[in-house]
């Protein structure tokens, strides 16, 4: 049979394809519906946090940081409760990372504050001597791209039914409002101003007041929400 296959490239290729596609079919298909169900309390990202998440992705923080706490005592002691599948339900893409050059960040919002982040992102070694994390000064002047973040939120709302503008927990109130771009932007600016003030940096506050959100503020909003 193999000799025959080797003289008939078409059937050879079909054979190879079936053999390699087999595993994917069995492994990926059955679980698809299950794993994407959100656990209680998991909500979609607000516009500002989504913009911050995009900054995190753009500067590839995931090259050095994981967001996946494994179920070992040494990890839960260090980082908090181990991660649950449903907590990632609105993560597109997932950001588990594959290398912990720096610590896990899945619950960093529980133990770091806005001003800590601002100082640390400006110059990590001034906060943690010996750190090998790079400084991200350009984030303090770059303006976060709210339009793209809004486009993403609207896309997932339309295409994947992510529950923006909905009452998720049944308390009669909308949990994560999105609305029109203008509404969403107004909301984001309000959130941003609060964070900018927490960082105690005048320049950031001024930028937000002038209607521009620096990338660092959006990023901190995202990090603060990782709990």
């Amino acid at each position: 049979m193999f000799g025959w296959l080797e003289r008939n490239p078409f059937f050879f290729a079909v054979g190879v394809f079936i053999v390699i596609a087999f595993a994917g079919l069995i492994e990926i298909v059955p679980d698809f519906a299950q794993a994407s169900r959100p656990v209680a309390g998991t909500k979609p990202y607000s516009l500002l946090r989504l913009a911050g998440r995009q900054v995190y992705i753009k500067d590839s923080c995931n090259a050095c940081h994981s967001q996946l706490i494994r179920p070992f005592k040494s990890e839960t002691d260090r980082y908090g409760n181990y991660s649950l599948s449903g907590e990632y339900a609105y993560d597109r893409p997932f950001l588990w990372g594959s290398k912990r050059t720096g610590p896990d960040l899945h619950r960093v919002g529980n133990y770091r504050t806005s001003d800590w982040h601002a100082n640390h992102m400006w110059d990590p070694t001034s906060v943690v001597p010996g750190s090998i994390m790079p400084a991200y000064k350009h984030m303090f002047t770059n303006v976060a791209d709210l339009e793209t973040a809004y486009a993403e939120a609207l896309t997932v709302k339309k295409v994947f039914n992510v529950p923006y503008d909905k009452d998720i927990d049944g308390d009669g109130k909308v949990d994560v409002p999105l609305g029109s771009f203008e509404q969403a932007k107004k909301q984001a600016l309000a959130e941003a101003l609060k964070i900018a003030k927490e960082t105690k940096r005048e320049d950031l506050v001024k930028m937000v007041e002038s209607g521009k959100i620096p990338e660092i503020v959006a990023l901190i909003a995202y990090l603060n929400g990782l709990k």
């Binding site: 994407s36 609105y90 597109r92």
Partner: peptide, 18 residues
């Protein structure tokens, strides 16, 4: 709207990882 080069993954969370 937004950046024409931007896209969002079809899969989310654990499925995306898988």
């Amino acid at each position: 709207m937004g950046d024409p080069l931007h896209s969002v993954s079809m899969y989310s969370g654990s499925n995306d990882a898988l």
